[in-house]
Write a protein that binds this DNA or RNA. Structure first.
Lengths: 162, 162
DNA sequence: ATAACAAATGTTATTCTATAACATAACATC
DNA sequence: GATGTTATGTTATAGAATAACATTTGTTAT
């Protein structure tokens, strides 16, 4: 069974701001933030935790839209290309980017218990990684930094896992 | 079509050493490095590039073994638990660990062109990540650091991708 | 306007990755 | 050798992603 979407009833302030920024950025770039793409971004931002592609697809279908996997993957590809969302490789899920426009790779803290994600941005880590790759003559195309663990909130609760 | 396994005919020196170390470690720990598990480790070490689970399964079947996905995933789970291999989340592949016994997370440079992987181990990066997580009261369970790009060898060749 | 082209979406099918659930076999301990 | 545990065999299915082609929508030039 697929995870529940955990969506709030209406777009949060965060989501509204993110959509507004996305509009602006796309307009500046001449990129077309279509209805579908905007809705997918909204779905992602409306969730407290990152969503898988098929969960997003379920929500689209609840909307009454027709849709198949390529529908959502193409929208996700667009949003990724525009730096509006991130993909978390360790979980195959997608989350809204808190700093769109910079096309950064991001560093993520992922809570195993509640699923929430914080996005770090430690330039020193980026710098060190670049030093390592430079020293090796390795050309960087993408950086993946994901820390899986338990967030402070979940640490307070009685352990649920061992 | 699944990627070719790119296996040398006989176990390389590296593979032989890795297998010997694995034997020792498992014996020390009372972990059972069974025939199947040893063979999977050998298959992984015999490849110049990381292998997917289904590629490993193909090799097992070429061996004449019976097998299904759980066969190989269970062996992989064991090898992961023993710190004898790493999983690269960005590619869904598995590669031999160069420093077994320490149960480290590892940092990887993955060449998009040739598929080869180098394993870094920069303690300063680990340290910085720990500082970040400590500052947030976040308990770390696993670290994923994967850099996708092009290795020096492939950079010398005429670009194959754009 | 409309023809021609490009971009986006619809649609069907398939490939790849991973696990659930249950059966059997091998091993250890007493 | 009976019992419990660990490992493996087996079947089926869930989950993630893309290929290939059809249709629609949007844009541009005439």
């Amino acid at each position: 069974m697929r995870q529940a979407a955990d969506l709030s009833c209406s777009p949060s302030i965060d989501a509204q701001q993110a959509l507004a920024r996305a509009e602006t950025l796309c307009q500046q770039r001449g990129a077309r933030l279509t209805d579908l793409r905007r809705r997918v971004l909204e779905i992602i931002w409306s969730s407290a935790t990152p969503l898988g592609a098929y969960t997003i697809l379920d929500v689209l279908r609840d909307d009454g839209r027709q849709g198949a996997p390529p529908t959502v993957y193409r929208a996700l590809d667009f949003l990724l290309a525009q730096g509006l969302i991130h993909r978390l490789a360790s979980l195959n899920v997608f989350t809204g980017c808190r700093r769109p426009g910079s096309h950064h790779s991001g560093q993520f803290l992922i809570c195993r218990d509640c699923g929430r994600v914080s996005e770090l941005s430690n330039p020193v880590i980026d710098e060190l990684l670049r030093a390592e790759t430079d020293a090796r003559g390795f050309e960087v195309l993408a950086r993946i930094v994901e820390i899986l663990g338990r967030c402070p909130d979940c640490l307070k609760e009685p352990t649920r896992h061992g």
